[in-house]
Design a binder for these strands. Structure first.
Length: 262
DNA sequence: GATGACCTGTGA
DNA sequence: TCACAGGTCATC
């Protein structure tokens, strides 16, 4: 399922292939997919005739700006969404979901006047499309996370460290796999109270988030972490060979090493 | 903040 | 048939 890295690959594909093309129509028959009161009719009249001028991203949310007076189209990939433009897909195949190409899974699409299309394929149907989203509901993007901001959000929270990092309103973009990878690399117990980190540890965590995102981006996605290979029942810590613990933290399945994560 | 719900596909 | 899945939302 897509995390911030897959969203970024999708953004890059949109930037390279969808900007400047005149929008001729929408395929938005799935009303459930349209959020915050948006209807297919309203979306169509708002977008047709405009062109996308910029492809932005905040956390996992894709933001497609249109020209003057036009709205911003926001797309979310949910747990299984992929962007397909003129038949070309962004990024590596996803884990934990189907990578087949069933026509029924196309939940939302923008048709261009030149005959091509930007489409969102999403088997599980947990993605979304909306217009002019409230971007402030999301915290700063994880790639732009500063040490002072990290210090601030950890310092006042008694929640588990992992839950704070995955709270999109505090930092936008960190998902289940990447967060497990970061905490494993930093040697931190995911269930540990967020405010219990001393300042040197916050600095270490900040560096680790940054380096992990950049390295996994180069490697090809959120499934390329070193912990990924051990992410199964009975898996051993790739660092020290200790059997990994599987527990639920912040509502998500969490793999971590009881020896070196403290 | 933890829990369950949302929706659907896959693999055991 | 069941458990599980890289996300988000409403509800207690």
């Amino acid at each position: 399922m897509p995390e911030i890295l897959e969203a970024e690959y999708a953004r890059e594909l949109i930037e390279a292939r969808a900007l400047g093309r005149v929008i001729a129509g929408l395929d938005a028959d799935d009303a459930w997919y349209l959020k915050r009161g948006l209807t297919a009719t309203a979306a169509t009249s708002a977008l047709v005739g405009h062109v996308f001028t910029d492809a932005r991203r905040r956390g996992k949310l894709l933001l497609l700006d249109t020209d003057v007076e036009g709205p911003t189209l926001a797309l979310h990939l949910g747990m299984s969404g992929r962007i397909v433009i003129d038949g070309e897909e962004a990024g590596d195949p996803l884990r934990y979901t189907s990578n087949k190409d069933d026509a029924r899974w196309y939940r939302f699409g923008v048709r261009f006047a030149d005959g091509g299309a930007l489409r969102l394929r999403d088997p599980r149907r947990l993605g979304a499309a909306e217009l002019d989203p409230d971007e402030e509901r999301l915290g700063p993007d994880a790639f732009a996370l500063t040490l002072p901001h990290l210090r601030a959000i950890l310092g006042k929270s008694r929640a588990p460290l992992k839950a704070v990092l995955m709270d999109q309103s505090r930092v936008a973009g960190l998902g289940n796999l990447i967060t497990d990878e970061v905490l494993w690399r930093a040697g931190l117990d995911p269930a540990r109270e967020a405010r219990s980190l001393d300042d040197d540890t916050v600095k270490l965590l900040h560096r680790t988030i940054r380096r992990t995102l950049l390295q996994m981006q180069r490697r090809g996605g959120s499934h390329t972490g070193d912990l990924m290979a051990a992410r199964f029942r009975g898996g051993l810590c790739p660092k020290d060979g200790t059997p990994l613990t599987i527990s639920t933290v912040g509502g998500r399945t969490t793999y971590w090493c009881p020896l070196h994560q403290r």
